[in-house]
């Protein structure tokens, strides 16, 4: 009988010290005077999320995907930077969503195509017509798979044109402000 697999070493990703996007690059919210944010999204990422959610909104099907980017440090604070989003074939209804089994390999191909040392900093999913909140199932998923301090959940209601960010707090969750910025290059 084989011995069980054994971890023999660990490499932890260092969080680089880099300032967040400057205020003149931020397009949402309009008032950034009170802003330090724990989550920044590129406008391209936000547009891709909305496009994905809107594509299935009329059918009232939930969609979801990963938030891809990095976690950075600045002045003793951490923030997540979403540079891209990825998704694949889904198994979805109006009240549930997960990746289809046959969708994983195309998803992996998309991840491998990113060509940078990315982190999965969270996930997004939609609640068409139901508003933005974290359901019991969503919280369970957040606890099981996105339970680091930097992990975020974006919930979108494309029919109510709402997008909100959440992270775990105690046994529940809390809404977090986020900023959308124009990426350069």
């Amino acid at each position: 009988m084989a011995k069980p697999p054994k971890i023999v070493g660990e490499h932890k990703k260092e969080f680089r010290v880099i300032p967040p996007p400057p205020q003149d690059m931020i397009v949402h919210p309009v008032d950034v005077s009170k802003g330090t944010f724990e989550l920044y999204l590129t406008k391209t990422s936000k547009d891709k999320i909305l496009e994905h959610c809107n594509a299935f909104a009329d059918q009232k099907l939930e969609v979801m995907g990963f938030l891809i980017g990095d976690v950075l440090r600045w002045k003793n604070r951490f923030f997540s930077l979403v540079k891209d989003v990825v998704s694949t074939d889904l198994k979805a209804t109006n009240i549930s969503v997960r990746f289809a089994k046959e969708g994983f390999e195309p998803l992996f191909e998309e991840l491998d195509g990113l060509n940078y040392d990315y982190l999965i900093v969270g996930w997004y999913h939609s609640h068409p017509g139901l508003g933005c909140f974290m359901s019991k199932k969503d919280i369970e998923t957040q606890k099981r798979t996105f339970n680091k301090p930097y992990h975020m959940a974006l919930v979108v209601d494309p029919l109510k044109t709402e997008m909100k960010a959440y992270k775990l707090k105690d046994e529940g969750y809390v809404e977090k402000k986020f900023a959308v910025y124009l990426e350069t290059g």
Binding site: V97, F99, F104, L107, I120, S135, D138, T141
Partner: peptide, 9 residues
């Protein structure tokens, strides 16, 4: 290890 999340109401 890649997350296999599940969303739902």
């Amino acid at each position: 290890l890649i997350p296999d999340p599940e969303g739902g109401i």
